Computed example of a mutant assay.
Amino acid sequence: MIADDIGVFLSIARSLGRAAIMVDVATCGEDYPGLASRYVHRVHALPPYLTTPEAWVEALIALVRKEAYRLIIPSSDSSLDLLAVAAARMEGEGEDIAAFAIASPAVRQAFSSKAATRALAEAQGVAICPGRTTTADPAAGAAFDDMALPLIIKPSAPYLIGGREAKASVRMIKDRAALVPTLAEMAGREIVVEEFFDGEGVGLSVLAEEGAIRLAWQHRRLAQSSATGRSSRRVGEPPSPVLQRDVERLCRATRLTGVAMFEFRQNRRSGAHVLLEVNPRFWGSLPLALAAGADFPLMLWRLWTGQGAAADPGSFDYRIRKSSLLAEVDRLSEEGGGVAGALRKGGGTALLLLKALFRPAQFDGWTRDDPAPHRVETARIIGRLKEAILRRLRYIWS
Results as ranks from 00 to 15, higher is better:
residue 47 P to C: 12
residue 47 P to K: 07
residue 49 Y to M: 14
residue 49 Y to E: 11
residue 49 Y to W: 14
residue 49 Y to T: 04
residue 50 L to F: 12
residue 50 L to P: 00
residue 53 P to I: 06
residue 56 W to H: 08
residue 56 W to F: 12
residue 56 W to S: 01
residue 56 W to I: 03
residue 57 V to Y: 01
residue 57 V to K: 03
residue 57 V to Q: 09
residue 58 E to W: 08
residue 58 E to R: 15
residue 58 E to L: 12
residue 59 A to C: 07
residue 59 A to G: 06
residue 60 L to F: 15
residue 60 L to P: 02
residue 61 I to Y: 00
residue 62 A to T: 13
residue 63 L to Y: 08
residue 63 L to S: 09
residue 64 V to I: 15
residue 64 V to C: 15
residue 64 V to S: 11
residue 65 R to H: 11
residue 66 K to G: 03
residue 67 E to Y: 12
residue 67 E to Q: 15
residue 69 Y to I: 04
residue 70 R to Q: 14
residue 71 L to D: 00
residue 72 I to S: 04
residue 72 I to W: 08
residue 73 I to R: 00
residue 73 I to E: 01
residue 74 P to D: 09
residue 74 P to A: 08
residue 74 P to M: 08
residue 74 P to Y: 09
residue 74 P to T: 10
residue 75 S to L: 03
residue 75 S to V: 04
residue 75 S to D: 09
residue 76 S to M: 05
residue 76 S to P: 04
residue 76 S to C: 11
residue 77 D to F: 07
residue 77 D to H: 12
residue 78 S to H: 03
residue 79 S to E: 09
residue 80 L to T: 15
residue 80 L to V: 13
residue 81 D to N: 02
residue 81 D to Y: 00
residue 82 L to S: 04
residue 82 L to V: 06
residue 83 L to T: 06
residue 83 L to K: 10
residue 83 L to I: 10
residue 84 A to D: 15
residue 84 A to H: 13
residue 84 A to F: 10
residue 84 A to W: 08
residue 85 V to C: 05
residue 85 V to A: 01
